[in-house]
Design a protein around this nucleic acid. Sequence first.
DNA 1: AGTACCACCTGACGGC
DNA 2: TGCCGTCAGGTGGTAC
Length: 266
Amino acid sequence: MPELPDVEVYRRYIDATSLHQTIEDVEVDDDKILDRVEKGELRRALQSRSFENSRRHGKNMFISLGDELWLRLHFGMTGDLKYYRADGDAPDHTRVLFRFDSGYHLAYICQRLLGAVSLTEDVDRWIADEELGPDALDLDRDTFKELFRNRRGSLKTALMNQNVMAGIGNVYSDEILFQARLRPEAKVKALNDSDLDMLFDVMREVLTTAIDRRAQPEDFPSSYITGRREEGAECPRCSGTLEKKKVSQRSAYYCPQCARDHGAEA
DNA sequence: AGTACCACCTGACGGC
DNA sequence: TGCCGTCAGGTGGTAC
């Protein structure tokens, strides 16, 4: 699930559960999850320190350990977190386990091992090195319009490109385009200035709504398609039927009936 | 700058 | 029951 809203919910979860407790130990279940850091190095770096605060950029979460050191978590397709007490309660696919002196644990879960855990001393520099675009909820209207102004290719591809803007993935790009009544394969170039204004507003609205609803699709407004991602599902806006098609190698769901063909005309 | 395709992983599901 | 292809909300590399 982990796109921007999900990761923001995880970040708040960390803030609500895991700050200011001494880390007694760090257990790594599978080295594949570690990115440019050794198991022992991670352990030594975190032991007897504590999580002090958190940041998010796109789909990445950063947790400060004080003294210019940050733990970075990326959740891949199947990442999750769980804070719990009893020793035996580690969830399936726990890949990294943080043990606190309070007796509680924080589990970083990642079934498919497509996530990543790493350390960095400078978050802004890490973001720059990765060439990530600005966070999708952090950028202003003019920056957004500028990023989209001279872009070729389809809307969905542009929205999901982390180098353009960070945080939006397959599901939320579909939701944003659905709410904007635009087709996923429509060309960015076909959008005029007011379309871009509208798309920016819709993007913010969708992301903030998702965060407000704790990124739980079943709690989303009934006008949303997230949570009804299957071929043949009824369009919540018209009498149409949702269709699925591949756009930039990913499954895009959209309503062919009430989405505009492109953004050229109003 | 785009796109297409493959690879990295695990697990669930449907068809035979 | 087993095997097999396909698919899944992510990213990175390569080739065109």
